[in-house]
Design a protein around this nucleic acid. Structure first.
Lengths: 204, 204
DNA sequence: GTCTATAGACGGATAGAC
DNA sequence: GTCTATCCGTCTATAGAC
C-alpha cells in the first residue's frame, strides 16, 4: 500500500538509503545507477533522496566513505618478515575485499572508476593510502619512494580484483586466498625490492 | 551549413561513423556514449546511424571488431627463450596497446567491460585469444592448462593497462616499455612456470 | 520528514518523405 | 542514402503542499 507521509518509526531512513545506494552502485556502476532506482529499491520517494543528498555525486560519496587506517595496514605489513612483504600485502588486500563492510564499496568504486572521474580519484586515493603509502613507509621511511613499484603493485591488485570479482576470468573467482597469496606474493615482492638492473644503484 | 540529402562524394559514410564511434566509446565508455552524440560528432543525422546499425550494441561491436591472429602471437611468444616468455608476453601486449589501430579499441573495451556485459565478454575473449591461448599453446600443447596462471597473467596485464592508460597511477603513464618489461616480465614468468608448491607434481 | 507534481533535458528507436 | 518528424521512455532537479 506504500503508506504516505512520515514513516511510522523514527528509524533512520537516511542510513537505509545510503545502504541501498551502495548495493546499487556496486551492482551496476555509477552511470547505470539512478536516484530513482535507488529510491525505488529503498521504498522511498525520489524527492526524499534529494532531500538528504545534494545530488548523485554526493550520494555516491556518502555511500562509499569508510575511513581506512593506514597505520593499521602499515602495522600488518611491517609485521611480516622482509622476504614476506609481498605475501603480506596480497593477504591484507584480499582480506579487505572479503570484509562485508568493504566488499560492495570496493566493487562500486572499481566499477565506476573507469568512466567517472570522481570515482577514479577515490580509487587512486584508496590505493595510495592502503597500498603505496604503507609500502613506502616500510621500505623507505626516509622519503625515497619506489613509485613505479608501488603503482605496479596497485595495478596488479586492481587487475586481480577485476578478474576475480567483476569480469570473472577463468579460475580466478574460485581460487583460494591461499593459492593467490602463494602465487602473487613473489611477484609483488619483486616489484618492491630494491632495483639494480644495469644502472648505478649503490645505496639510496 | 549542413547540406541536406545525399552527400556529395560517394565516400564511405558508414566507415566514418564507425571511426567516430570508436573514438567516443574510447573516451567516455559504453554508457556515456550516445548514438546522438556519435551522429553529432560525425556530422550526420542520428537516424542515419540507425540506418546502418541495428542499435547501440551493434555499433559498439562494429567499432571494436578487429581480428587478432592468435597464430601470430603464438609465433612471437614461442620465439622467445623459455626463460624469457614472461618478458615476451609483456612486450607483445604493450606493443599491441601502442598500435594506433588497436589503442582506442582496447581503451573502449576495458572502459566498458566494467558495467556492460557484452563488453565484458569481448574483454574475456580477447584475453583468451591473445594471452591465455598462446600461453597454453606454448606450455601445454597437449591440452593441459594452467588456467589460474593464465588468468593471473591476464589480470596483471589488465591492471597495468588501467593504471597506465585509464586511471593513471603515479609513474605508470610515463614508464618506458622497456622498464615495464624488465619489471613485470619475471612476475609473469612466475605465473606461467610449472607449479610444485607442496603437492605432488611429477610430470603432467 | 515525506510526498505530489512538474519542469526541462536527453536517450533509443521508428515510419516515412525526398 | 539521407533527412524530418515523432513516439515514448528515462533521467536529474526543483517548488511547494501536507
Amino acid at each position: 500500500m506504500t503508506p504516505r507521509g512520515r514513516r511510522p518509526g523514527g528509524e533512520d531512513t537516511r542510513a537505509h538509503i545510503v545502504e541501498v545506494a551502495r548495493t546499487e552502485f556496486a551492482a551496476h556502476g555509477y552511470d547505470r545507477t539512478s536516484l530513482r532506482g535507488v529510491a525505488r529499491a529503498a521504498g522511498v520517494d525520489p524527492a526524499l533522496v534529494h532531500h538528504y543528498f545534494d545530488g548523485k555525486t554526493d550520494l555516491f560519496t556518502a555511500a562509499m566513505t569508510l575511513p581506512i587506517r593506514p597505520a593499521e595496514i602499515v602495522a600488518r605489513v611491517t609485521a611480516a618478515e622482509p622476504g614476506q612483504v609481498g605475501a603480506s600485502v596480497v593477504r591484507t588486500f584480499l582480506t579487505m575485499w572479503d570484509e562485508p563492510s568493504r566488499h560492495e564499496r570496493m566493487l562500486a568504486v572499481v566499477r565506476s572508476a573507469m568512466s567517472d572521474e570522481p570515482a577514479a580519484r577515490m580509487l587512486r586515493e584508496f590505493l595510495d593510502q592502503a597500498v603505496a603509502g604503507p609500502i613506502a613507509e616500510f621500505y623507505a621511511p626516509e622519503g625515497e619512494r619506489n613509485a613505479v613499484g608501488a603503482s605496479l603493485t596497485a595495478a596488479t591488485l586492481t587487475g586481480i580484483a577485476i578478474g576475480r570479482y567483476l569480469v570473472r576470468f577463468e579460475g580466478l573467482p574460485d581460487a583460494s586466498v591461499e593459492e593467490l597469496i602463494e602465487r602473487v606474493g613473489p611477484a609483488i615482492q619483486g616489484y618492491l625490492g630494491p632495483r639494480r638492473p644495469h644502472a648505478e644503484a649503490d645505496q639510496g
